[in-house]
Structures are given as structure tokens and as C-alpha cells.
Design a protein around this nucleic acid. Structure first.
Length: 542
RNA sequence: GCGCCCAUAGUUCAACUGGAUAGAACGUCGGAUUCCGGUUCCGGAGGUUGGAGGUUCGAGUCCUCCUGGGCGUACCA
């Protein structure tokens, strides 16, 4: 529908040049009294043209070449909205389109030929993933799915720092637990990793090497084994959520490939770095950031900023049109430095879209479960998946706007009932599958020949919802907002359930039954496609 | 102190990048099933969008200030 309006407006703009000077839009009104789509152009122009918006609206309408078979009514309403009412026949054809395009329905080629990189999770392998990582993991993967559905070729990437202090402490922690295992009395420092998994790794090393590692460097086998073990566990957890990565990029390779040195000399050439107190500082204050920061410590070791900038530079070198970074709000202070660093070497930081999710609070029986990583007192993502299953985890993390703080209601999530929004959606899909099975026995086939018979209110509402899908996907994807899809699918499921309650397939006149069947099948396809993007299964039976 | 995020119905959240009468789910109260899956559907009650100003045709959305919460504010990542 939007496509159609865009076309006739573009044609009209050749006569009314002012139309191409503003950024007007077509929106779906909240109330259907206001039509299927509404245009705000006249109101936006009223100041510029110093004319009454309704008068402008009138002028626009008289210059539109409207096909009456497509749009049956255009009216000016309120302060100057132009409301378009599409014909029922035109809207009903969406059913035909859906059944033809099947799993491709809703995909667009708007960004065809463009490459995107989505970096997410990126947790350092120092321990199991927590529920907080879960949010980033699910949303990152869903954002990648959405981008694919609007034409991008997407690479999913996981970046981790294996050259810094955190990994050193990890090696130290494992070694100490190993020594403890050998009967040494140890004093385990508070800032070492506290979890039981450290002991498990020590045990594995002990099983394999006995007491031969007492002289081993913590950064040797201890760190290596820990990284390997923990990474495997992280990958296993993610794969339970159907999340896999195309590439794992590690910080160490930036040193091996001299990317750090290259970057340092670029900064130096541009006069953007200077020595002070034995450290190397970056002139961030000249790059739109409040103050200068250290990029190489007095010890000669870079701070995280330098490799982070170098890493992002490799993304530019790899020619992505869009780079998405997703991380938790505890990193909120770091990204402006990275973006400034990229601009400093003349890269277009607007191509980097930084998404930050807030913290997750877990609620059980109305009580907040307090978590502390340092004390290893947290719910792991694995435990959460054990408790509620992958579908619920994915749906719950997708259904909230990431910029809000989230309350994850464990009690609700565990319920396999109508209180749980996931089941409402899945039930709608399973119900349609069941109808298809039943109806097949009655030898009724779906047909798109008589869609114009679908004139009942519930049928019209459902058709309207189906018409909105393509646009919802596009808006959700371009805004990086998976929760929009959840909201839409809930509305679609509701529209279907209402249709089902009042309009029967069996027992209706043949042509009508066939048309209704087609409508139900189209709904099933859209539910399936939408759930697919969210990474939630669409069960045939429940 | 400073920076970023948040505050909408009893609760959890929407509101299409400033649009028309602020919506939905859960909860609550009251209804619907001889019939393709009742894990469903219909209806009622429930709001000064944290507060105060401002910008304009129009503000939950933008600006300023205030209140209350979260996350940061390292030569940790």
C-alpha cells in the first residue's frame, strides 16, 4: 500500500515541486476511521507555504492520479491529514501474495548488495554467560536476522580480548586452584575468578598432567586450557539459542598482524598522540570527546581503546556498509572514544551503529534476585534456558525495547499458560495447523479466487493486519528494534483468534470456506515468518 | 560533581523516528462453548504520561530546570 502511495506522490511531485522539499510520511492511523494510511505532508508544508493545511491537502489530492480500483476514498481530516482508504479487493490480494511468496513474504531487497557486520556477545571467555549476556545475544542475532530480511548480507561476529589483564587473572586463578588441588595451602584473592568452573578446569588439568604443571607459567597451559574450555561452554550455550557466529575475532591477532602499530603511527603522523608521564595519550579533546585519554600505559601495554579502535578499523577495511555493535550499558562510556578514534583517521563513524541494552533484573515470585559477578552469585544463561526453554528466552529478550531496564519475570516465563505471551502466539500457529489438518479431511482446499467474499469485520481486520507486515519488518529492521515484531505478532494473533471465533470454515458455503481457508493459511505463513526472524519456533501441535 | 539511559493503568510494557480520542497483556469484576484446539473470545472498571516551564498548527515523544532510579566516570575491559 505504501509503495503505491509513494509512486503516485512521486508522480505528483513533478507538478507540485514543494512535495520533494519535505520529508513527509505515510503512517497507519491508530483508528481505522482514519483510513488505511495517512499522509502528513500538508501540515508540514503549511508554514513554508503560508497556507491553510487543508487547502494544501486539497491541492495535493487534485494532483494525485488515483486508480479507483485501488483507493476508493481520499479525505482530508483533522488539522490537515490526507487519509487514504484502500479498496477491499486491493487489500485482500495480500493473501494471494503471501501464499505465493511463502517464506519470502516480508523480505525486501531494499538493501540488496549491502554488507553488514553485527558484533554481539563479545564476552571475554572468563566465565559462563549470564542472563545479561543473554539479552545482547538474542537481540544481536535477531537484529542480524532482520537486516538479512531487508536485503543485507550479514556477518555475525564475536570479538574478545585475550591479550589483556582479564585473561591473565584467569590463568592465575586456574593455577592457584590447581596448586590447591595438589594440597598446597593457598590464599585465594578476592579479585580472582570465584566460580566453581575454575576448579573444574583445574581438575581437568590435574587429570591430564598430574603434578607436572607446578612450574608452568599461568599464562601458558592454564590460561590456554581455561580459554578453550570456557569458550566451548559459551558456544554450547549460544547454540542452544540457535545462535552461531560467522567469525570470532580476537584481540591478539591485532598484534600479530601489526594493526596496533599501524594505528599508532597513523595517530602520530596526524599529531593526535603525545607522551606524558611515560604514557602515550590521545588528543580526544580535539576529537569531540571531553578529555584526553591514555592509549598506551607507562608499562607499554595498550589500554582497551587502542585495540578497540584498531579492531573497528579492520571492519572498515573489510568494506561493510553498516556495522552494528551491541553491548551492555556498562560499556556505555567506551564507545564515544572508539568512534572518535575512527573519525580521527578519516573513517565515517556514522556507518557504525551502537546499540546499548540496559541491565536485566530477574524477578521470581515478585522478588528481585540479586546478582553479583564477582561473588559468582548469578544466574547463568544456561540455567535460564534449562528453566524456561529456548523459545521463551528468545521471545522475552526480544519483546522489550533494549533502552529500557528489563524485569525478567521468571515465574511468568515458566508458566506454560495463557499468561505467557509466547504461548499465545505459538497457539495461534498450532491452531491454524490443526484447522488445516481437519479441513483437509473434509476436502476443502484453500483458494484465492474469491477473496472478495471476505467481507466480515473480523476478516477485514485480519486482512488489514496482514497488509501491515512488510512495513513492520522494514521499520523494525531499520530501527534495530526487534520488540516491534513481537508487538505486531501479538496483534496479528489476536486478529486471527477473533476471526476464528466468529467465522467458521467448515459449514460455510464452498467458495467462502475456500477463501477463509486461504486467509488462515496466509496468517500461518506470516506468523511463521515473524517468529522465524525472532528465532522462536512455530509448533504444529502443542 | 559530570556523562549516558530510564520514569506511561494495580503490575509488566507499547505508542511507527512530533500527529488525530495515549493502546495492549497480566491482574480484577461480569459474560460466551451441542460447532474446525476454551492455551480462545466478548464486555466493564482502571491515566493530570514523575513534577514545573518552554518550542508549534499539534508534545508521552523535542529543549531547560527539578525529583527519583540504573550504568558509567581508570595508565580495568
Amino acid at each position: 500500500m505504501k509503495k503505491y502511495l509513494t509512486e503516485i506522490f512521486n508522480k505528483a511531485a513533478m507538478k507540485l515541486s514543494y512535495l520533494s522539499e519535505i520529508d513527509y510520511s505515510f503512517d497507519t492511523p491508530k483508528s481505522d476511521e482514519h483510513g488505511d494510511l495517512s499522509c502528513n505532508a500538508a501540515m508540514m508544508l503549511s508554514k513554508r507555504l503560508k497556507k491553510n493545511p487543508r487547502q494544501i491537502a486539497d491541492e495535493i489530492i487534485s494532483n494525485l492520479d488515483v486508480d479507483e480500483d485501488v483507493i476508493e476514498k481520499v479525505e482530508i481530516a483533522g488539522p490537515g491529514f490526507i487519509n487514504f482508504f484502500f479498496s477491499h479487493n486491493y487489500k485482500a490480494q495480500i493473501v494471494n501474495q503471501i501464499l505465493k511468496e511463502k517464506s519470502n513474504f516480508g523480505r525486501s531487497n531494499k538493501h540488496k548488495g549491502q554488507k553488514a557486520n553485527v558484533e554481539f556477545v563479545s564476552a571475554n571467555p572468563t566465565g559462563p554467560l549470564t542472563v545479561g549476556h543473554g539479552w545482547g545475544a538474542v537481540v544481536g542475532d535477531t537484529v542480524a536476522n532482520m537486516l538479512e530480511s531487508i536485503g543485507y548480507t550479514v556477518e555475525r561476529e564475536y570479538y574478545f580480548n585475550n591479550a589483556g589483564r582479564q585473561m591473565r587473572v584467569l590463568g592465575d586463578s586456574v593455577k592457584l586452584r590447581y596448586l590447591e588441588l595438589l594440597g598446597n595451602k593457598i590464599d585465594y584473592p578476592e579479585d580472582y575468578y570465584q566460580g566453581e568452573y575454575i576448579k573444574d578446569i583445574a581438575v581437568k588439568l590435574h587429570d591430564k598432567f598430574g603434578d607436572k604443571l607446578t612450574e608452568e607459567d599461568p599464562e601458558g597451559k592454564f590460561k590456554e586450557k581455561a580459554e578453550e574450555e570456557i569458550f566451548n561452554e559459551i558456544k554450547d550455550t549460544l547454540s542452544r539459542l540457535n545462535i552461531t557466529f560467522d567469525s570470532f575475532f580476537n584481540e591478539y591477532s591485532l598484534y600479530e598482524d601489526s594493526k596496533i602499530e599501524e594505528l599508532l603511527s597513523m595517530f602520530e603522523e596526524k599529531g593526535l598522540s603525545y607522551k606524558k608521564d611515560d604514557a602515550l595519550w590521545m588528543k580526544f579533546s580535539e576529537l569531540g570527546v571531553a578529555e584526553d585519554k591514555v592509549i598506551v600505559k607507562a608499562t607499554g601495554e595498550p589500554t582497551y581503546r587502542l585495540p578497540d579502535i584498531a579492531y573497528h578499523k579492520t571492519k572498515f577495511d573489510r568494506n561493510y556498509d553498516l556495522m552494528v555493535d551491541l553491548f551492555g550499558s556498562d560499556h556505555t562510556a567506551t564507545y564515544p572514544d572508539v568512534l572518535a578514534g575512527l573519525r580521527a583517521i578519516d573513517l565515517d563513524s556514522d556507518k557504525v551503529k551502537v546499540l546499548i541494552h540496559q541491565f536485566v533484573t530477574i524477578l521470581e515470585d515478585g522478588e528481585v534476585i540479586k546478582m553479583s559477578t564477582r561473588k559468582a552469585n548469578y544466574i547463568t544463561l544456561d540455567q535460564l534456558i534449562d528453566d524456561v526453554g529456548s523459545d521463551v528466552v528468545r521471545y522475552f529478550f526480544n519483546m522489550r525495547n533494549i533502552s529500557s531496564h528489563m524485569n525478567f519475570d521468571l515465574t511468568l516465563a515458566k508458566k506454560q499458560s495463557d499468561e505467557n505471551p509466547v504461548f499465545y502466539l505459538q497457539y495461534a500457529h498450532a491452531r491454524i495447523c490443526s484447522i488445516i489438518r481437519t479441513v483437509a479431511e473434509e476436502k476443502i482446499k484453500s483458494s484465492v479466487k474469491n477473496l472478495n467474499l471476505l467481507l466480515e469485520e473480523e476478516e477485514k481486520q485480519l486482512i488489514n493486519k496482514l497488509n501491515q507486515y512488510e512495513d513492520e519488518i522494514l521499520v523494525a529492521a531499520e530501527n534495530f528494534e526487534p520488540h516491534r515484531i513481537c508487538t505486531y505478532l501479538q496483534e496479528l494473533a489476536t486478529a486471527f483468534h477473533k476471526f476464528y471465533t466468529f467465522r467458521r470454515i467448515l459449514g460455510s458455503e464452498k467458495k467462502l470456506a475456500e477463501a477463509r481457508m486461504a486467509l488462515a493459511e496466509a496468517t500461518k505463513t506470516v506468523l511463521q515468518n515473524g517468529l522465524g526472524i525472532l528465532g522462536v519456533s512455530a509448533p504444529k501441535r502443542m
